[in-house]
Amino acid sequence: MDNRRIITAAIGSLLMLGLVSGNAMADDKKMDMEKCFGVAKAGKNDCSSNKSAHSCAGQSTKNNDPMDFVAVPKGTCEKIAGGTLKSM
């Protein structure tokens, strides 16, 4: 069957690759395994990174939300054709 030949050839090429770059791949894997579990993205899950609100009592007595009427997307969406609002 033709499909069987296709599969045999494809796995065969994976095995060839394994022979050629066997050492490099083992290193990659080692690096993966040494990663600390629970590593956080920069600034993530960290209360002190809060840039949106003042973290000291007394600095902020009212919220710093923008007015809700600022509700028109104004970002890189302008570079995506058909993706932006028609200008009013």
Binding site: D65, P66, V70, A71, P73, G75, C77, I80
Partner: peptide, 9 residues
């Protein structure tokens, strides 16, 4: 894509 102000809303 939407900009910081819109994202905050």
């Amino acid at each position: 894509l939407v900009g910081k102000d819109f994202f905050r809303v």
